[in-house]
Design a protein around this nucleic acid. Sequence first.
DNA 1: CGGTATCCATAATGATACTG
DNA 2: CAGTATCATTATGGATACCG
Lengths: 120, 120
Amino acid sequence: MKKNPEQCQVVVALDMIVGKWKPVIIQHLLNGDVLRFNELRRLMPDITQRMLTLHLRELEEQDIVQRKVYPQIPPKVEYSITEYGRSLEMVMDAMHKWGAAHVEHMELKKKEEALSEKEI
Amino acid sequence: MKKNPEQCQVVVALDMIVGKWKPVIIQHLLNGDVLRFNELRRLMPDITQRMLTLHLRELEEQDIVQRKVYPQIPPKVEYSITEYGRSLEMVMDAMHKWGAAHVEHMELKKKEEALSEKEI
DNA sequence: CGGTATCCATAATGATACTG
DNA sequence: CAGTATCATTATGGATACCG
């Protein structure tokens, strides 16, 4: 399979997970949990209600997240990963592993810089 | 490039490749080619000179891309992937594969929608 | 409880002209 | 050839108040 960067499919995948809180939301739902709106908020204390709504709606539109509304008062809405969304697990894993390695790489780089400063 | 809101390592990886043209630049350099500034421009006809410069400088800062300047007139600058940058290949591949599958998924979805409209 | 509606600040990108 | 500089525009996210 040839990789053609022009009609870059990497960008297609990126579009699904880019957004300040989207990766975190996806990660939480990939755990397999079914979470209510405010449960998600509690898991991400710094997200605003607005952004949580926006991102969840986008993920729903993208068929990554399923939204289930219970028509009752007070309202109850549950969010879960879709079967399709679960296919993102490979991608998320690859990035998670790379991210972890990157942290090590940066720490190494800092140490090297600190060392070469001492030598001067 | 913004700081990661949580200590999510997926976000660490994302920060390296997010940017309108960054994934495409990385893909081109991952091919193993050593490319000059204007060669990259030709490969991405719609990128502005400014954005190409900005993204390349960020990628250099992130140790993903190596910039080699030949001090001559007219100037000659070559860009290539670093060894560390090459480690992104796994991530890029995972996303590329997912992106390809996603295109199929969307086409399937459209067909289903078209079908259910006929039934109505 | 699970949202919307506004308004605002900042970040990201683009257009265009100029340069050693 | 490989950039900078400047200004304009758009995208993204935040603060706050209100709603059924």
